[in-house]
Design a protein around this nucleic acid. Structure first.
Lengths: 113, 113
DNA sequence: CAGTTCCATTGATGTTTGTCAATTGATACG
DNA sequence: CGTATCAATTGACAAACATCAATGGAACTG
């Protein structure tokens, strides 16, 4: 998408050179912002960090004591990460195991680079 | 920082192998989450995208018409990006020019990679 | 000086968020 | 069965957020 700026100026002088802005696709902006937003909380960011560095799936009962919040709050954060597609989970009997889905993080780092 | 998980289990069986989690530093998590949060809105993400791709400083009067929100709303978003350290601004007479501070984005991409 | 332009700030409003305590649903154990 | 455990959900609440219209302040213009 390209957007041509509408310049205004008090005396007719342009405030900058006329430019066509190579804008990010709105749909991509939406996707990347959604991922960034999900990472925009220290607890969720740390969760993703732990899951990323731990190759494999991690039980929720291991994650809860790492933080100073209630179990329901942590479950809420995990849901946000799931909704954003950043993590996935798997039920095994009584336990739930979480792991990172690298694709979504790639979308963010792809935009950054 | 390293945190040792406290495992619980109904029958004494561990739900996973005992692991020491190499956790991100809380202060770093806070910083990175702050940056991600500031990018977690489509308008702000697009703003940063425009500023990044346009090498140089861009006048606010060029940015406002790119979006479907009021001038005061855009000013509010620019302030959030400034507060997060992602962009800086410069006043020149009547106009204000914004540009990206690459350091903060590096903090995020550094964590991602 | 009076009017105009740009941009930041203020105040108001409805929405979203982070948090907890309590509950529920599912599974396992004795 | 009945009880215990894990994790998700619900309901409640204060704080933060996105938005706009209106105002303010600074700097040009004539």
């Amino acid at each position: 998408m390209t957007l041509t700026p509408k310049r205004k100026s008090p005396n007719g002088q342009p405030c900058c050179k006329p430019v066509v802005y190579p804008d990010v696709e709105p749909a991509e902006a939406e996707r990347v912002a959604r991922i960034a937003k999900a990472l925009g909380d220290p607890i969720r960011l740390t969760l993703v960090d732990v899951l990323r560095k731990h190759a494999g799936k991690v039980c929720v009962c291991e994650l809860v004591p790492l933080f100073d919040v209630s179990q329901s709050t942590l479950s809420h954060h995990l849901k946000k990460l799931r909704d954003a597609g950043i993590v996935d989970s798997e039920r095994q009997g009584l336990w739930a195991y979480y792991y990172v889905n690298p694709e979504e993080l790639k979308e963010l780092s792809g935009w950054l680079n």
